[in-house]
Amino acid sequence: MSSPLESATADWASALAVRGFLVSIVRVLSNGLQAEVSDTGRTCRVNLYHSRGRGFSVVYAGGDRGLFGDLTPHSGSGLPAGGSDEAGKGDYFGPLVVAAVSLDPDSSARLAAAGLADSKTLDDRKISSLEEAILSETSCFAVSVKQPSEYNALMESMSGGRNSLDILAGMHADAISRMLGACGATKPSVIVVDRFCAPSRIEHLLPAGFRYDFRVRGESEPAVAAASVLARASYMRSIRELAGEIGIGLKPGAGADIDGIGAAAVRKWGPGILDRTAKKHFANTGRILRSAGC
């Protein structure tokens, strides 16, 4: 009997074969498969995953990005597809940002050819150029930002088992709602939400009347990848602005080097600087205050 991954892969490969693509499995991964896909003169590799409750996902793994864009199902209807993603969730300094974007298939293909991918795999220069490309392709987007001071106030108000994921869920819902408002009459036929929590935590917050796909590794959908780029670009601008305000270089992350930066900021400005610049519920805060002698 075939596994769910094998069955889903077979269906996916068959659908591509009908469209003239050649698919071959080239490698077994620890939790998936790697396939090579080719057509006339173009080749790319993709990683294939399947898990219970998460479904089948296809992730770019190298080769011709334009070809990968052609493989992506988008909404499956020739209509636009929407997506949302966040930045700053795992970073001590700077805001939490969520973006939502809707792209039609032609825009998705052009952006894929330009190198669109999950922002975590891109450097700052590429993120900046892709942000410009995305904004030239669509006006159907929205960005939701919670600066550290607002974020910390919300965290302090949390009770009854609610936590940072509830803030994030509300921000996804806000960005998606405003993105839909920017779309006018041409709404996306599906909205892919990068799955950061159980769908039950966010479903009741989302605009009604739309089809949602809560997907792990959602960046395989171009609209989600585009949202990840817009969110990261906004996050990086904010962290540069905060650094300029306090005169200390800030950067993403939550490791030991971040503790050193935080301790320097506290020594210069006092503990209150963390309210303005950092997500204080992170474990970094205790280490920083101890290091700074507070």
Rank of each mutant, 00 (worst) to 15 (best):
A175E: 04
H281P: 03
P199A: 11
A256P: 07
L274V: 06
W12N: 01
S164V: 14
V23N: 02
V26K: 13
D85S: 09
K89E: 12
A263H: 06
R215G: 05
G62T: 13
S129F: 06
E86H: 07
G32H: 04
R232T: 09
I246E: 08
I246R: 08
V46H: 01
S220A: 12
S7I: 14
H50Q: 15
A35T: 07
A133D: 09
R217M: 12
A182L: 03
S157K: 15
G170F: 05
N284K: 01
S57F: 00
K280F: 01
S177N: 12
R178L: 03
S149W: 11
A226H: 00
I127C: 09
N163A: 07
G76Q: 01
A109D: 04
L116F: 01
D104W: 00
I248Q: 04
A100Y: 02
A109Q: 11
V59K: 07
S136H: 10
S107R: 00
N152M: 04
I246S: 05
R162W: 07
E137A: 12
L79H: 08
V58I: 08
E241S: 15
P188H: 01
F141D: 02
A173P: 07
L33Q: 12
S30C: 09
G90R: 03
V193G: 04
A169C: 12
V224P: 04
F210R: 08
A278S: 13
L168N: 12
R45F: 06
R45N: 12
I239N: 03
H172V: 12
S149G: 11
G66A: 11
S75W: 00
C183K: 06
A185F: 07
A223L: 00
S38P: 04
A61D: 14
S2L: 15
A233M: 07
H281Q: 09
G62E: 10
L242K: 06
R290T: 14
R232N: 10
S14P: 01
